[in-house]
Amino acid sequence: MKTKRLVLDTKKPLGNPSGLKMAEGVTLLLSIAVEYKVAPNLLSTGNYTALAYPFLVNIIPLGYPCWKWINLHIINYKIYKRLMETVKSFV
């Protein structure tokens, strides 16, 4: 049986954070722009559930960093803890 191998990239633990920040920023600005345009009309008609739809677009760029954190700190906690102890022993 193969053992899991977890590699900790200390320089970029979440992959490419600049790309994630850019994707999240673009979708956040887009959702705010859509809200700004449609919110007065939706509030006057009483359609409050439609106000949440543009913010649901932000689940995609926010999901990856959250999944990485859950994967490291909850699912592979024992491996991550041993790896962090090894890294701290070199410091």
Rank of each mutant, 00 (worst) to 15 (best):
N76E: 12
N58P: 04
L28Y: 06
A39Y: 05
N41K: 03
A39P: 02
I59C: 04
M22V: 15
N16W: 04
V87E: 13
A52W: 12
L51C: 11
I59K: 01
E24M: 12
K2V: 04
I59H: 03
K4N: 08
L72H: 06
R82D: 15
K12Q: 13
G63C: 06
P65W: 00
L14A: 06
N41V: 11
V87K: 07
V38L: 07
P65S: 14
D9S: 13
S89G: 09
E24G: 15
L56V: 15
K4I: 11
F55T: 05
K81P: 10
N16F: 05
L43R: 08
T45F: 01
K2C: 02
I79E: 14
M1C: 06
R5N: 09
L8T: 01
A23E: 11
I74S: 11
S31Q: 07
A39H: 03
E24C: 15
G46C: 11
Y36F: 06
V38P: 00
L29H: 00
L29A: 11
Y64G: 00
I60R: 02
S89Y: 12
S44M: 03
F55D: 03
T49G: 00
T10H: 08
Y77C: 02
K21F: 10
R82I: 08
L43M: 12
T49L: 15
P13G: 05
M84V: 14
V87N: 11
K12P: 01
P13T: 01
K12V: 08
P54K: 09
L8Q: 02
K21E: 04
V7N: 08
P65M: 03
M1F: 06
K11E: 10
M84P: 15
P13W: 01
P65G: 13
T86L: 04
G15M: 09
S89N: 14
Y48R: 02
N16K: 06
H73G: 03
T86Q: 10
I79D: 12
I32S: 00
P40S: 07
Y36R: 13
P17C: 02
G46F: 02
C66M: 05
N41R: 00
K78H: 08
W67L: 13
L43Q: 10
I59G: 05
G25C: 08
A39W: 03
T27C: 13
T27I: 15
N47A: 08
W69T: 15
K2G: 05
L20I: 13
G25Q: 02
W69F: 09
Y36T: 11
G46M: 07
P54H: 08
P13C: 02
K21P: 00
Y77E: 08
K12I: 05
T27P: 02
K2M: 04
K12F: 10
V57K: 03
L28I: 07
S31I: 09
P13S: 03
N71L: 10
V7I: 12
N47Y: 10
H73N: 13
Y77T: 04
L83S: 14
